[in-house]
Simulated scan of single mutants.
Amino acid sequence: MPQRRAVVAGSRTFPGAGLAPNPGSLIAQIEGIFESIVESIIRKEELTINFERLCFPGRSQKEATKFTRVLLILQLSHDALVSNEILTKRHIFYQNQELFGTQARVDELVDCLALTLGVGREDLNIVATSKGLVAGQATVHLKDGTSIDASYNRIGSSIPLSTTIASVNTSNIKWILVIEKDAVFRSLVSTEFWRTSAAGLGLLVTGKGYPDLLTWSFLHIVQRNNPNVPILVLVDYDPDGVNILRCYRWGLSRLPSPKYLKAHWIGIKARHVLESRNLQPVQSAPERITHQEQAYSSRGGDSAGDSISSISCREPSAQLSVRDRQLVRGTLRRIQAIITTDESSQEVAEMRYELQKMLMLGVKAEIQWLDDGGNLTGWLEQEIILCLGPE
């Protein structure tokens, strides 16, 4: 249970964080802060919020500005809770650009404020704009009575805010595939791989790179309701891919308390690279890289018309860069710090082995590289069936 903190205004102490995260208690906490500040103003005392011991007017202009930013976020959160509306961090920034300066400041303050109050960011009715997509045999029922049919949209449906979800019906699926690349996700959705796969009905999910909180929370809800349906993760064979896997498996640093997903890594791994007869660990020559290829190679994906077997894709097997090697070493340090159970220790050992092997081979490979023969779906079916085991 989170420790109880105090919000201080002048000489008065107001019990703050650690209460149950429901709208009523949060509204009471925030209003208690405001009342304390008003009393301090009446008594002509210095205003203090026990959020990194912020004061107003403070010892510097920087401290006074930060106090103002925190107070504004508290006010916006209070108004959103009272009116039962949802605010996005992007909206807060664009409505107050001069005060915050950058989007990153809003993100940091909202997350830190939620942690200080002992709640999740969503409990403040402040969320990030969702970038996650879902497609497949699932129906998401929302608390307002509406529903989202994930099988209806041929480009995937946006993942909703977890606090607006009443239930998720995934009773018929046999597997969940989380895909790093948006381009691969959209190609699989366009062929309805979730429906036509020999592995049975499934669900496709992408966080378009590193997962955001909404995508991770959605997967957590689905797994909680369907603990026997495996979550399979497909990422690039590079340091970022392994880091993305780590984020899905062991949660995000922004979570108010440690939570985990039981997820299985199906690829890409060193053995897939070594088994390929066409491996050429060389960087594409600069003169051969077109503007379209550069756009495709970015982690944000490609144009909507490109397929995963497009011959215009850049060579997906390349040498590790200096940055890649530094990132591998940093990831090795992070996974070393993971507190493991008997069940997860083998996963950590596998991640460590794969990263060390990556350094030794000196190469990386994108998911598209598996489709060199034009049959990524066939490879996926084999891997998914292998993970499912005998009926």
Rank of each mutant, 00 (worst) to 15 (best):
Q137Y: 03
D240E: 15
I179Y: 01
Y210F: 14
F185P: 10
D144L: 03
A114Y: 03
N228M: 12
I173H: 11
R224L: 07
I244L: 08
C247S: 09
V233C: 08
V222L: 14
I173S: 09
L213R: 08
T206H: 00
R246V: 14
L219P: 00
V222D: 06
L177E: 04
Y237V: 04
A198K: 15
V119R: 00
L204S: 05
S187N: 13
R249W: 09
S130Q: 11
F185K: 03
I165E: 11
V205P: 06
G200E: 07
I221M: 13
L204Y: 08
S197K: 05
L203F: 11
L213A: 05
K131V: 14
T146M: 04
V235T: 14
I159R: 02
A135G: 12
K174W: 02
D182W: 05
R246G: 04
T215S: 13
L245D: 08
I159N: 07
I221K: 10
V127R: 08
A138I: 10
L204W: 09
L204P: 08
G156F: 07
P227W: 09
K174T: 02
P211I: 08
G156H: 06
A199H: 06
Y248V: 09
Q223D: 05
T191P: 00
D149K: 11
Y210H: 11
N153D: 14
I244Q: 04
L177K: 06
P239W: 13
A150N: 04
N169M: 01
N169L: 03
P211Q: 13
V242M: 13
R154N: 14
T196V: 15
S171C: 12
C247F: 12
L201E: 11
N243C: 11
S187I: 13
W216H: 14
S171N: 10
L219A: 10
L188C: 08
N125H: 12
A198G: 14
N125D: 05
L188G: 02
V184R: 09
